[in-house]
């Protein structure tokens, strides 16, 4: 190494030194420790005892683990496509030359920055089976037939759809992104299509969609990663749905036992930190796979010349 190289290296390390410490203490060590604990019987109060693959073996046989995974996939499988569709639809509508566009954009975006605890409280109230806004609205259509809206969060078959509906309210983030993506589609493409006499729908399918597909795919996968980590709203709402103040079981009837809730209660309620670490690692692998997919979609978009 020449002196100049050495000097540059020192400067580089000096500038990134905070991150070197941060990476080591707040990421690298936890990732390694988590892996170690996942092979241990560990409760934080007692010293970890090595138990090999036992945690992973138990995980494979743990009905609740699978249930939490199924619940999470159900939620993600519903909220991500619906959220993407709604956001894309709204973005397309906004992209028509309509008046008041920035006001609409503002209105759609606002819910997405509402603190999740506050929006959980609000939706808890909206989904109240008797006095809630949702059933008040639905009953306008249902009561002529002698029907009544469901009990939502108190009903195991409606609690997850309720959370999905709530997630749609927060989809404004994606609206903004997709709108920006739509605005980046070169106008010449549309003009060419128009000259060819393509209908608006065909233009959307053949011009718009291919042009913004990478953005949509990337953001949908990011949303999927987020949905896999669903915690706060489900935790708060299930605590309230039960009434006896214990959220660790995903009430009612474990219908909202999501992956991160099970992980949290295993670790910090049952103090089974080793088992929780094994769960954490499985989540880590799932997320890594999804991220890799996202990277495939966005490959080349942020690779710039050195």
């Amino acid at each position: 190494m020449t002196r100049a190289e050495g000097k540059r290296l020192r400067a580089g390390v000096a500038f990134t030194s905070l991150w070197i410490v941060g990476l080591a203490v707040f990421t690298a060590y936890p990732v390694a420790a988590s892996l170690f604990y996942s092979f241990c019987d560990y409760s934080i109060l007692k010293a970890p005892v090595w138990c090999g693959l036992e945690n992973y073996r138990q995980l494979a046989q743990d009905e609740l683990f699978w249930k939490s995974l199924r619940n999470t996939l159900f939620y993600a499988g519903l909220s991500v496509p619906l959220g993407t569709a709604v956001a894309l639809g709204l973005a397309v509508l906004l992209n028509c030359e309509v008046g008041g566009r920035s006001l609409f954009r503002l209105l759609f975006f606002m819910p997405s920055i509402v603190p999740v605890v506050a929006s959980a409280m609000l939706w808890l109230w909206i989904f109240n089976g008797k006095y809630g806004l949702m059933n008040g609205f639905l009953d306008l259509f249902l009561s002529p037939f002698g029907l009544h809206g469901p009990a939502w969060l108190a009903d195991p078959s409606w609690s997850k759809p309720a959370l999905v509906i709530m997630s749609l309210w927060g989809t404004g983030n994606a609206v903004v992104i997709y709108l920006a993506g739509l605005q980046n589609v070169p106008a010449e493409l549309y003009e060419a299509a128009e000259i060819d006499g393509a209908s608006a729908w065909r233009r959307f399918i053949h011009v718009t969609l291919p042009a913004i597909a990478p953005v949509v795919a990337f953001n949908a996968i990011m949303a999927l990663i987020g949905a896999m980590q669903l915690f706060a709203q489900a935790y708060i709402m299930s605590e309230a749905a039960n009434g006896n103040g214990n959220a660790s079981d995903g009430n009612p009837a474990r219908s909202t036992l999501f992956y991160t809730i099970y992980l949290f209660s295993t670790a910090f309620q049952d103090l089974r930190m080793g088992y929780a670490s094994a769960m954490a690692y499985v989540l880590f692998l799932i997320t890594a796979a999804l991220t890799w997919m996202a990277a495939q979609f966005s490959r080349g978009r942020y690779e710039d010349s050195p």
Binding site: D249, P252, A253
Partner: peptide, 19 residues
């Protein structure tokens, strides 16, 4: 007992909801 209690509740819910 914490886990036991949760199971008792979960079974109870399933049973009373005819699940």
């Amino acid at each position: 007992w914490q886990e036991y209690y949760r199971e008792v509740i979960s079974s109870f819910d399933r049973v009373r909801l005819l699940d």
